[in-house]
Design a protein around this nucleic acid. Sequence first.
DNA 1: AGCCAGGAAGTCC
DNA 2: GGACTTCATGGC
Length: 278
Amino acid sequence: MHQAHIQDLNLSQIAASGQCFRWKALEEMTYEIIAFGKRLVVNQKEDLFTFSCDEKEFYSIWYAYFDLDTDYKKIKESIDPKDRYLSAAISYGGGIRILKQDLWEVIISFLISQNNNIPRIKGCIERLCDHFGEKWMKDCEVSERRKFPTPDVLSCAEQSELKELGLGYRDRAIYLMAQKLKQDKKYLSRLKAMDYQEAHKALLKEYGIGKKVADCICLYGLYKIEAFPIDTHMKKIIEAYYPNGFPLERYQGYAGILQQYLFYYHLTKTEAFSSKNK
DNA sequence: AGCCAGGAAGTCC
DNA sequence: GGACTTCATGGC
């Protein structure tokens, strides 16, 4: 167990922010996180966080995962105070950070995300893990849920096997990506060595990856925080509040973090609206 | 029944 | 380069 006081971090906001799909709420402000072949349980009480791992694992894995070297307070203070929508988004979801997730998991997750909704994306990914993911050793801390499947395991999957998981037409993109990694074992490490422009361009060559998914992979899988994914929510935000486009120039180098505040704000507001109207 | 969901590929021009 | 269509699947 390890405890730490951490600022600018809110677990429930991140869990609902659409950047990760496998966080599971065990109880109020307690989440199970499965990543990098590990399982972590985190509890939050205001700014006090209790992690199920020991201190050594916390600093070797999770410190980077939660992006704790980045000063989010400074980022939030840098925004244009006249930008009312962005200000509101930040005061609403200021506990969001960009997680430094596993690249392979991000690639597969956002291949599944296209023209899909978040609850169903989560279901698709969970079925993928149930079917292909590794179980936990019997004597360690147990979860019913499995690890995210490795490239090796997925590259052995038949197309018909993927079809059964109900991923829709996206199973073809997953199959081809797994096959690519079988042919090109260094692909992921090459991507990690690229800058944003190079990585984005390289990702666009792959089947099922367009501009938006490439940006999500850059932002969440490669921590290119200048990437600014524009999905259906961001389009609506820009239409409604940024008639001249979002001022990317003002926030050069980290606009992706602001995108996350905006996305989460719009997402939860539209969710609240649709549930109120039923 | 039709529209939407963290879109992209294919097919026109 | 755009615009338009099609692509599975499920919730509302």
